[in-house]
């Protein structure tokens, strides 16, 4: 019984561990990140009006669309609500894992993607949530070399640096992308590692189920009050109450026959059952369409 008690405790703590292990990710405005900034644009990205100006790229790290409308962009830490991103324009919806670029040209008449500041006198950019108080992301920059942008080395990652190429509305990582599968095969060209790891995981998953259900009857008949007390006498009440499937099948068959057999004694005896016809106005002849008007 001591062993059993220990096992229950282990399972209990394992489940607790599983519950609190790791962390979850929400998918909302807080998933937006300032991804890349170009402060001095001499011969770089041109806006729809053929003009070059500083620009700020925002990246949606979530796997669903996020609408940036109603949020605020600013280059002044003391004025978080400097530029309200207007609502009602479809361009403010950023698709999953996608980008939006704002031009810091102080020309708001050119559309909602053109900000009311130009970053000539500021090295700071911040994105605030719709309440104007919750900071979503901010970055303090150093004055850059013209046409060299500063951004996250991988989209949405923690690490910032000078980027080899400016990549407005595109991934900041410009090297060769190797898929997880290709990387795996480089290390495991014959698939043996995959077979061993994957089979182990399948076994662990089903082994856990096996361990739980090996003890399941004891688990659900467990007296929790006595589990953590010193004096305890556990009686396995079910130990001698096993009923085999064959006995169950016989009982079920007997019950089935008892319920479904309509005969009183045997097949040669006629049983008369009363059949009642229930009344419904839908079938009543007096409401028929062919009755003459009165």
């Amino acid at each position: 019984m001591k062993v059993l008690k220990k096992l229950y405790k282990q399972i209990f703590f394992l489940l607790l561990l599983l519950l609190f292990a790791g962390h979850s990710f929400s998918q909302s405005g807080s998933d937006l990140r300032i991804n890349e900034v170009l402060m001095d644009n001499d011969s770089n990205y041109v806006d729809d009006f053929g003009q070059r100006s500083a620009w700020i790229e925002i990246f949606n790290t979530a796997y669903n669309n996020v609408n940036i409308a109603g949020m605020y962009l600013t280059d002044d830490p003391k004025n978080p609500t400097k530029y309200l991103i207007p609502k009602g324009d479809p361009v403010t919806v950023i698709p999953q894992r996608n980008y939006i670029v704002f031009f810091a040209d102080n020309h708001t008449t050119r559309g909602i993607l053109h900000l009311n500041f130009d970053m000539k006198n500021s090295n700071y950019v911040a994105l605030y949530d719709v309440n104007g108080r919750t900071l979503i992301d901010e970055i303090n920059l150093v004055r850059q070399i013209p046409d060299i942008s500063y951004g996250r080395l991988n989209d949405g990652s923690e690490f910032w640096g000078k980027l080899d190429k400016t990549t407005p509305k595109a991934s900041n990582y410009t090297g060769k992308i190797v898929t997880a599968g290709e990387e795996f095969v480089k290390m495991d060209p014959y698939g043996l590692g995959m077979a061993m790891i994957a089979m182990s995981v399948v076994f662990i998953a089903l082994m856990l189920l096996y361990l739980v259900f090996k003890n399941t009857r004891r688990l659900y008949t467990l007296d929790l009050k006595n589990l953590f007390t010193k004096e305890k006498i556990m009686i396995d009440i079910n130990e001698n109450q096993d009923i085999t499937g064959e006995v169950n099948a016989a009982i079920s068959m007997a019950l089935y026959l008892y319920r479904s057999e309509l005969h009183d004694h045997e097949e040669t005896v006629l049983t008369i059952k009363k059949v009642a016809r229930t009344y419904s106005p839908w079938s009543s002849k007096i409401y028929g369409l062919r009755n003459p008007h009165r």
Binding site: A195, A198, M199, V202, F203, L206, M207, L209, Y210, F213
Partner: peptide
């Protein structure tokens, strides 16, 4: 529940 392990082995 031992039979669960057979289900795992067949994934070979």
């Amino acid at each position: 529940p031992k039979l669960m392990l057979v289900g795992a082995a067949a994934q070979l």
